[in-house]
Design a protein around this nucleic acid. Structure first.
Lengths: 343, 343
DNA sequence: CTGTTAGCGCGTTCAC
DNA sequence: GTGAACGCGCTAACAG
């Protein structure tokens, strides 16, 4: 039976619907025995309350949402796990929603806020700049995690929060690390889209570092992957093209570890040794960077810290104990086996 | 304003609520001009319809759900992408839900079915055996993708569908491939939980192959990872322990590629060469198997085919054009660089 | 083409 | 402690 409702349960128990409701929702003012009886019938019947109806009525749902752009991205997994844990600790429900590439994360948020009566929203991934009007429409606090503080130029920074690393700075540090190893011809694998994004900042950091060290920018060494920055295939193909172009370089910096893994493979195929012939660096500090051969030199983002801080900040804002803030965590440059001094 | 509803829009436009509803839902019988006016006001206002209320009313929502157990698992990503595409082709909405480790996927399904008025459900991952009563409570067709046909012994196979590879057979094939290379002391990394699961079948296939070839089972060579089968760390640690145990073996078969990547790293750390000193094989045929160094010998699951067949089957059942079926796809043994003849 | 109205299933007042 | 009645926001009949 599809149509079994609370009314049916009430009938079978010979009680009113409100009593059943009380039983379901763990209200205090109900006779323990009646409650027990009702719960039994519910179990027998296999009755499941309709969430749509509940959400429609409920006013005090302790619920927050995490919107993740790019399901392809294993990067957020650890962050999500922590978020779920923290939410549980606070007795909050957490709805997790993947935002498709073609969807606007803010539109999704708007819908979800109405549907689930959210108290707060966390964004992971996605564009780093949004229309200020939409973000204002959200009536609940918003925190962007791992998305830098350039969310919207037009919007006061007091209207949303961010928790992230300073992508440009960290990227600059990595580039300077390579320069410090004696590399001057440093190629980079970055993103090709024209949208403002976090990875664009990494490219900028690279450019800044070169300029600051008096190294001329060679456009032939800046390689943009087609679309997905978290695709080994893209890293592989782009690196292969770079190699075949004949352009000289002694180091390759990939703005994600996943791209770097593809690059490693491309070098192996070409008989180019890493790090003897060329140094390779990644970014993110994902699991794979510790397990690939050779281990990747990379910038580790402290995802646990970021995620915990995000949750704490969100709850603080919800509880009125804080205004919006912009927290920046330092990245950690991890020296793997994929880079070495230029010989 | 949180509380802006369809009534408010109707008032502002000087029309009835149903007209607004018609405008929103693209009904045909509405004056284009009124519609245009209404949509404008909606845009100005930033009005967003409440999905809970919609779902409550709607009866014909063309909507299916995909429930994925184990958010940690990148394995399903390509399958999900295809599913979304196919759903869109059919003008179906697709809700994607991640099922947490502690949740029962069938409970989640039950809830979701009521909440969203689903027409069908697809399960990916999770337990391979379910209570027959719960599965019967689902009033819509159910297809298990990549979960073999042992879903429930008590339940008639006519009550649900499955689309998958034959995990036991494929696993046996891989093991026999290794045996064919001259390996006799073949270690395996498998799962430790006691729940029936797909990966258990892979272990069984391994055992069968050994028996069929007159090789005695050495329990010291059967290593069970703690929990997550898709964790490089687990693969690394378990392999490390295996190496340190001093037990002799010339090949290691990991029941997932991700475990195998961890294993590769462990061998590298121990100065053991792959495949010169030891052969390593994986299972699944995930991206990483093509990009790691050395490339993994693995069994590729035809995820695209499985996903497409799953969708087609589900829609056929929904449309009454098919009963429940159990489709098995062959896996493809891919020879990488990680295995070779025992010297 | 459009407005009015009746529920969808439930949580929540209120009386009792 | 419990039940009756109301309404959450919306869609789908039904009239016009």
């Amino acid at each position: 039976m599809a149509g079994i409702t609370i009314v049916e349960i009430a009938k079978r128990c010979g009680v009113g619907v409100s009593t059943v409701s009380r039983a379901i929702n763990d209200h205090s003012d109900i006779n323990p025995e009646t409650k027990k009886r009702i719960l039994e019938v519910i179990k027998e019947t296999g009755y499941v309350p309709n969430n749509s109806a509940r959400n429609l009525k409920r006013t005090d749902a302790k619920c927050i949402a995490v919107l993740v752009k790019g399901i392809t991205n294993p990067f957020f997994t650890p962050m999500i796990q922590i978020a779920e844990q923290e939410a549980e600790n606070r007795k909050y429900a957490l709805v997790l929603r993947h935002v498709e590439a073609y969807e606007d994360e803010l539109d999704v948020a708007l819908e979800l806020e109405k549907e689930k009566r959210l108290r707060g929203i966390i964004f992971m991934g996605g564009s780093s700049r949004h229309s200020s009007s939409k973000i204002k429409q959200l009536n609940v606090p918003v925190v962007f995690a791992t998305i830098g503080s350039e969310v919207s130029e037009k919007l006061s920074k007091k209207e949303y929060s961010t928790v992230s690393v300073d992508d440009m700075l960290e990227s600059r540090k990595m580039t300077e690390y390579l320069i410090g190893l004696g590399h001057k011809k440093i190629a980079i694998l970055s993103e090709g889209s024209d949208k403002p994004s976090i990875v664009k900042l990494r490219l900028e950091g690279y450019i800044e570092a070169l300029k600051a060290n008096g190294i001329e920018i060679n456009k032939n060494l800046i390689r943009l992957v087609d679309k997905r920055i978290y695709s080994m295939e893209n890293g592989y193909q782009t690196t292969k093209a770079l190699i075949e172009s004949g352009e000289e370089f002694s180091a390759l910096y990939c703005i994600s570890d996943v791209l770097a893994v593809g690059a490693l493979r491309a070098f192996a195929d070409a008989g180019i040794r890493v790090p003897e012939d060329v140094s390779v660096a990644g970014f993110d500090g994902q699991d794979i960077s510790r397990f690939c051969v050779p281990r990747l030199t990379t910038v580790r983002q402290p995802l646990e810290d970021i995620s915990k801080a995000t949750m704490k900040l969100l709850f603080d804002i919800i509880d009125g104990e804080s205004g919006h803030r912009h927290i920046i965590f330092p990245g950690e440059l991890i020296e793997g086996e994929s880079t070495r001094k230029r010989s």
